[in-house]
Design a binder for these strands. Structure first.
Lengths: 165, 165
DNA sequence: TATACTGTTCAGTATTGACTGAACAGACTA
DNA sequence: TAGTCTGTTCAGTCAATACTGAACAGTATA
């Protein structure tokens, strides 16, 4: 177990992360794992570590880590010569999370599109609701990639503390 | 009840919208109400209309409409001289939904900030995880308003079929 | 082969919450 | 005041699921 500045502050942070992720459909323990992996020392922790730190059963940890790996928030690493599994936050997790959010734009744009297909023969005023909805999401869907590129460009420009990965 | 091009196509669309909103924490019937209000003719529908069209109880409609009003997706209108309540999609619902999503950026940025506070005395490599997370969300939090402004400007420029509202 | 250790699977529990039917409340007509 | 609309509230049911404890399976050491 690592040295944390204040155990209670860490615990409070873990709880906060857990609550932040809950409305996004991530079960409580999943959020706790993320929170803990964000501040744990070292960054890679075993299933046993997680179970101990969070006071959860091995079963929960096993199921949740598999889930978090599937949604690409964490990854499983095996240190050479070791037979234990370690978990850590994926370096690109947050970038991909944001990109997934942007893919959500497409979903809604398509939904509007389908609605307009249903109202194909309807008069314009009736279609207006869906037209504006479509226009808006199509706009952001079109513009977001450029913004994402600017972010990546800015990152490449100042690789200051990009030690890991 | 209005004239729909194809009842089954409409029903299918309603179902699709319902499924689209489900992962966002909107209960099934809530999504159905949104779907129906997107294509219904006329755009304003009574609680009874909704109950009949969706085959749901008055109680569900009452609770869900109140919820959807609270999250500002729909609004309750009273036609002059009428004593019945009508519901319709708010004209600015989708814009505000997107803005709410952007507010989510702030939540995550703050979360990273809190984590960094917990690791105030930790060495740089340990803080790196949270630093990149913070930088990324702060970047988008900073840039998104400008993009939103561009959208509004573009809308003002061509007020073509902005008949309603 | 025995044993320690890893992690997974599975049955069972307990909680949450979406939805309904029925009772209730308020406002307009007769 | 009675009757008929509106919409809300409430108790109860039903289904989904998060979580646990215990049994299981695989792999390395003795």
């Amino acid at each position: 177990m690592g040295e944390l500045p204040s155990a209670s502050a860490a615990q409070h942070f873990v709880e906060e992360v857990s609550l932040t992720f809950e409305p996004f459909g991530v079960p409580r323990i999943g959020g706790q794992i993320i929170g803990w992996l964000l501040i744990a020392d070292p960054p890679q922790q075993t299933g046993g570590d997680l179970a101990a730190a969070l006071g959860a059963s091995k079963a929960s940890i096993s199921t949740m880590t598999r889930f978090l790996i599937q949604v690409r928030l964490i990854e499983r690493v095996r240190l050479p010569g070791q037979r234990r599994d370690y978990f850590q936050i994926r370096a690109t997790a947050w970038a991909e999370l944001l990109e997934a959010r942007m893919a959500g734009l497409t979903t809604i744009r398509r939904m509007a599109e389908r609605g307009l297909a249903v109202l194909a023969d309807a008069p314009a005023p009736q279609r207006a609701r869906l037209e504006t909805m479509y226009a808006m999401y199509a706009f952001f869907e079109r513009e977001m990639p450029a913004l994402m590129d600017r972010w990546h460009a800015q990152q490449a420009q100042r690789p200051a503390d990009q030690a890991h990965e």
